[in-house]
Design a binder for these strands. Structure first.
Length: 122
RNA sequence: UGAGUCGGCCAGACAACCGCUGUAGUUCAGAUUGAGCUAUGGAGGAAAGUCCGGGCUCCAAAGAGCAGGGUGCCAGGUAACGCCUGGGAGGCGCGAGCCUACGGAAAGUGCAACAGAAAAGAAACCGCCUGUUCACGCUUGCGUGAAGAGGUAAGGGUGAAAUGGUGCGGUAAGAGCGCACCGCAUGGGUGGCAACAUUCCAUGGCUAGGUAAACCCCACCUGGAGCAAGGCCAAAUAGGGAUCCAUUCAGGUGUGGCUCGCACCGGAUCCGGGUAGGCCGCUUGAGGUAUGUGGUGACACAUAUCCCAGAUGAAUGGUUGUCCACGACAGAACCCGGCUUAUCGGCCGACUCACCAG
RNA sequence: CGGAGUGUAGCUCAGACUGGUAGAGCACUGCCUUCGGGAGGCAGGGGUCAUGGGUUCAAAUCCCUUCACUCCGA
């Protein structure tokens, strides 16, 4: 199994991001984060992060959240369907511990996979 | 031992597994490059605030003047500074030490609410004192009261601030009016590169109150923007761009607020121009470490040695285990030198005070 | 990352350059007016002038520090 995460697996320019924002196929969220997803024709899923200075003021916390999101995505990317994913951080996320954030992201990815499976069956 | 002052250093450690990124080597594909393997590097003392200074880039060369801005005891250090070091003055502390925008108010202008008589080349409100006039009392030349004239800054009261202090003399009452001591100012001498000091000498009787983080004066410094600077390759789209030659006036355009100055406008030759995107700028530097020399010190010089982040939707992480002092503030974005602010604790050195013992 | 600017009553803003009283409109409270409400009139309450220092006799205002917020520049 391949756990690597290179530039191919990231959204690299504003065109990629705006496509996900304008043509969102699926949405899952909690009180401290929101995940948008769009089906693609690539053979692998791709990740984009939006962690603004307004929602997370401290730069150390902002880096921590992005690292945790990338790590969680890296460990699950083989299990995910072929989608472009954008994770948006909300205000309360900087108060959570690392373990809580990882648990939250895992459950969100599970919900997303379940929704996509349900859509395919229907 | 306790309390304290100053300076310096560290910023959890180790291991396993899974990842990210730069460089070098190598293999395979490929010929713009991509993938794998190996080796090796990968956030800070403040990376922060952006408060100063410089490098670098563009504005023709960064030139002149004005305006504007900054600094402000003296000397030195430095690429430079509003920083640092040493010294002076003033203030705080028993002390080690610490703090200070610390030039000029006898160049000029302005300001000082309220209160107070008066707020700046002084002033008479109460008070004190001396004459004059009037009234009253009588002890018949004195007392009291009123009016008006003059002297007086000792006392009261106001205020943040009221024009040397204490004592003696002096006077109608007073006053640097005079004297002694203290303070102050000016000139000279002496010490010091200087700021400044002065138990030295002379002079002045005190004139010159506060505010310059009010305008201002003096001395020194200062062109403007900023790596999203700027340069190169180049889809889309749109009509000019580069080089060479010539050059008078006016006008216009081109950068900072203005003026001067400077460049361009004409002709000839040649073709690409430049938004998305990519590349360069991008890390070898006023560099680090060690030793020696000079200097009180900041620092400088010499020799040896080392290469120590360079991302770009943006890397330096996650999980588990062990140990301890149980981990604060916090994340590079062109690069340096400072300042300021945030901060868990720990270690080392020098010194001061108090107590005890010797 | 770089560059500008703003914090004053519950809200929107004056006052700051040139230092001495903190003001205006809307909102709020009470009274008058009306059968009652609205409108109108009269009176009143409400301010760490974002924070901490400094200059000054005296600071919203002058100077420095810190903290928020807003707007520009691929």
């Amino acid at each position: 199994m391949n756990f690597s995460l290179t530039k191919e697996h990231k959204l690299l320019n504003s065109l990629d991001f705006s496509q996900v924002f304008e043509k969102t196929d699926f949405k899952v969220s909690t009180s401290s984060s929101l995940i948008l997803a769009k089906l693609t024709t690539n053979s692998y899923p791709r990740l984009g992060l939006v962690v603004s200075k307004k929602n997370v003021g401290c730069a150390v916390a902002r880096n921590r959240i992005k690292r945790l999101c990338r790590e969680s995505f890296r460990l699950r990317s083989a299990l995910l369907p072929k989608v472009d994913v954008v994770i948006l951080a909300k205000t309360g996320i900087s108060r959570l511990e690392n373990k809580q954030i990882i648990d939250m992201l895992n459950s969100l990815f599970d919900q997303l996979s379940a929704k996509i499976e349900h859509r395919k069956l229907a």
